[in-house]
Amino acid sequence: MSSLVEVAKAAGVSVSTASRVLNGSDHPISAATKARVIATAERLGYSPSALARALVSRSSRLLGVLVSDIMNPYFSVIARGVDDVASRAGYATMLSNVDRRTTTEINRLQTMRDYRAAGVIFAGSGHVDDPHEPELAKAVRQAREQGIRTVSLTMRGLGCPTVTADSRTAAYDITDHLVSLGHRRIAFIEGPPGMIATRQRREGFLACMSDADLAESAQCLPGGFDYESGHAAALRLIARPPLPDAILAANDEAAVGALNALRQARIDVPGEISVAGIDDLRVARFVGLTTVSLPLYEMGAMAARHIIDGGPDEATTTILSHRLIPRETTARRSDR
């Protein structure tokens, strides 16, 4: 492999100029010189950085995926869908955790702009009445003007295409399934407060309970999207008998936490109480959890295809279908 000195000599530039080009420096260098240095480096087998290439072409083969919580397997499924499509097309995926902070999303988007990313996917839910949303929408608009394509996986008003699932209807459908089994007193373990996904799923639950004339039997408990939140919520229910007929959690992880708490208390599931979740993550399949399968992989894959294939960049919304997955944690209510 050739050295930087050899590349500089062959390209007819100084070593410092070659270094600046190949390391992505912002130092003013003409586009023709940049192109000549990179072409020489390739011919001699010297590997220039991807950023240097991006500075010449004004675009890189990089897809950014911004997730609310990198520990949540919900986002792992989405990221796999993105990366499978990206890899086949010769793109790389960069996953970035934003800790449910819009300000962090804005900062990460700027980083993607600095790297001349081909596109950025907003995989997180976003917040209800978010005071920072206008600033994020402005940053998205600026990125698009720069040629960076953006896709949101939740309806957030960012002014970009949206590929999503209908969380409200998914929660409605799983609640309706519990009602169809004869359950009347149903407790709903909510997601993190203030999140759009939390509101959508709570609204779906309450709408179904109202349509079934069971609004007075509906109970909403503070929770989250993790095992610990579901476990803690179930312990509160156990401490205040009688138990409801069924528990629906805002996602599978919280549902499994609740399931574990019930079993630790030697409460028969589904004999004494049914438990269900939303998402259909791998953990749900291992424990036999009744849930709703959301098209997470397909959402990620479609978002990646939209960026790579250069689909329409208007603020269109594509809603993918979900399906009910009955398993062993729910059963028809017996008189007790």
Rank of each mutant, 00 (worst) to 15 (best):
R144Q: 15
G64W: 11
S68Y: 05
R305D: 08
L136S: 08
R100C: 01
I319D: 01
M195V: 05
D26A: 13
K9Y: 02
P48G: 10
G300V: 06
D83W: 04
A207K: 09
A11W: 04
V275N: 09
G194P: 12
S16V: 07
V56T: 14
M209D: 09
A301F: 07
A254M: 07
A117K: 03
A86G: 06
I307Q: 03
A52R: 10
A331Q: 12
S2I: 00
R263T: 03
R141Y: 10
L44P: 10
Y74P: 11
A41R: 11
S180F: 00
S229Y: 03
G12A: 04
L289I: 06
P131R: 09
R36H: 10
R53P: 02
R199S: 09
A79S: 14
Y91P: 05
R20P: 00
R305I: 00
R53A: 07
A170K: 07
G230N: 06
A187K: 08
R333C: 00
G159D: 13
L294R: 04
R201D: 05
D99R: 13
S293F: 00
R285D: 14
F188D: 02
R236A: 14
I174A: 06
G230T: 09
A218Q: 06
T164E: 07
V82M: 10
L178H: 05
L51Y: 06
V56K: 10
Y297Q: 01
T104S: 13
M112I: 01
G45R: 14
A249D: 07
T162A: 14
G257A: 03
M195P: 01
T318R: 13
A143C: 06
V7N: 05
G311H: 04
A52C: 13
L51H: 13
P131G: 07
N107Q: 15
R332A: 12
D211Y: 00
H132A: 15
L51Q: 11
L289Q: 09
V179I: 15
D335F: 00
